[in-house]
Amino acid sequence: MNIFRLAGDMTHLLSIIVLLLKIYATKSCSGISLKTQELYALVFLARYLDLFTDFISVYNTIMKVVFIASSLAIVWCMRLHPLVKRSYDKELDTFRHYFLIGGTFVLALVLNEKFTLQEILWAFSIYLEAVAILPQLVLLQRSGNVDNLTGQYVFFLGAYRAFYILNWIYRYLTEPRFTRWIACVSGIVQTGIYADFFYYYFISWKNNSKLKLPA
């Protein structure tokens, strides 16, 4: 474990806490894409299959349980909570995310570290996570005004993978034979997708104005 990876995991955890805070404090999920939340639940379920088979550390196990439980809780909330589900922007959240699932699964069948179910699902989860934010970014562009908590949620979600890139560089320099090409290339693509969001987020922060993504 290095400081970059710890910072990445804590930023990721913070993004989930901010999202939970927004939903519970405002009893609303307006501006949040249910499709992105479903994709994240799928990412964690596909990636943490080794939760019961490979014990890495207490920290690793606890974080996996927290990520799986929180992503499922958010999907449950947005689908079934009587008060929250009414504020879901169903007509704005129209990204065809099934194409993302299909495309990344086919890519995982072709590009993986080993042609076993667990490795294919792991690669699938890595590729899917890279594009999972797309429905959310499209929703933000359509809904125009972005409330602060939603903006912070997306910002921390993008920042965490940027920390992971620093972690991969650090591990590549300090550990012999450390290679994580699938995670690294996918992580760079993932962080790149946030680039324009980061730009508008920085502008809104500098001008102390409301975050607005151009349609």
Binding site: R47, I56, W122, Y164
Partner: peptide, 10 residues
């Protein structure tokens, strides 16, 4: 056969 490194990252 080739053993993939443990997935120690989240």
């Amino acid at each position: 056969c080739y053993q993939t490194p443990p997935k120690d990252e989240l």
